[in-house]
Simulated assay, not measured.
Amino acid sequence: MLGADKGQSGSLKGEGLVIGIVRARFNDAITSKLADNCLAELAAMGVLDKHITQVTVPGALEVPVALKAMADSDDYDALIALGCIIRGETYHFELVANESGAGVTRISLDHQIPIANAILTVENEAQAWARTEEKGRDAARVAVEMANLMDDLL
């Protein structure tokens, strides 16, 4: 029915979902805390540990490559990108932030797989720490909700 609102929205029930997580090692303490919070939220929504694959890459620019390999496998209902880019004194911040974000989006669209992008882009380390709990948990919720929504839509 053209123009009809399907009334669909993804649920936050993670039972049976298979999730892939790619975490950048750069700023390791911060990204590890993001991952801890993400995993805790996935567990709270019912995603089993055995249905979660975690890989670690050197930095944010490498995250899309690993996400693409996971998306190519067709083994996952949703993916999660975790990283932390802190502004420095050079243009490198913009390059890494823009290119990693564009890569994540491109893979999601090309493969029609939800990817929760929780690659923090912040001015300083204090801002990163202030965001680790909520952004880690939010990434898990986005992945589960979108996986369920895509299942309903496709």
Rank of each mutant, 00 (worst) to 15 (best):
R25W: 11
I86H: 11
D49P: 05
P58M: 10
M70F: 14
N27I: 06
E123W: 14
A116C: 05
G20L: 04
I107K: 03
P58G: 11
I30A: 02
A24K: 04
H51P: 00
G20V: 11
S73L: 13
V104W: 03
V65A: 08
V55A: 11
S73V: 15
G101V: 01
A102P: 00
L39M: 12
K68H: 09
H51E: 02
I119P: 01
I86V: 13
A102H: 11
V55F: 11
A128K: 06
V63I: 08
C38F: 10
C38V: 08
D74I: 15
N124K: 14
H111T: 15
P58W: 12
R106G: 03
G101C: 05
A69L: 07
V96F: 06
F26I: 02
E123M: 09
L109S: 10
I107T: 14
L82K: 03
K68F: 02
N27W: 12
A116L: 03
I119K: 10
S32K: 14
A78P: 00
L67G: 05
I107V: 15
N98Y: 09
C84K: 06
I80V: 11
L17F: 06
A78V: 07
E125T: 13
A43G: 03
A40T: 14
I30T: 05
I115Q: 12
G59I: 02
T90L: 01
G103V: 13
A24C: 03
A66P: 00
D75R: 09
F93I: 07
C38Y: 07
L48A: 15
E125W: 13
E41D: 11
K68I: 06
D110V: 15
F26V: 01
V122E: 13
D72L: 10
H111N: 08
R87D: 05
I85F: 12
A97G: 04
L42F: 10
D77G: 10
L120P: 03
K68A: 08
L109V: 15
Y91M: 01
E94W: 13
A43Q: 02
A66V: 03
A126G: 00
D36T: 15
I115Y: 12
V57N: 07
S100V: 07
E62S: 07
G101E: 03
G59V: 02
Y76D: 00
R87L: 07
A71K: 04
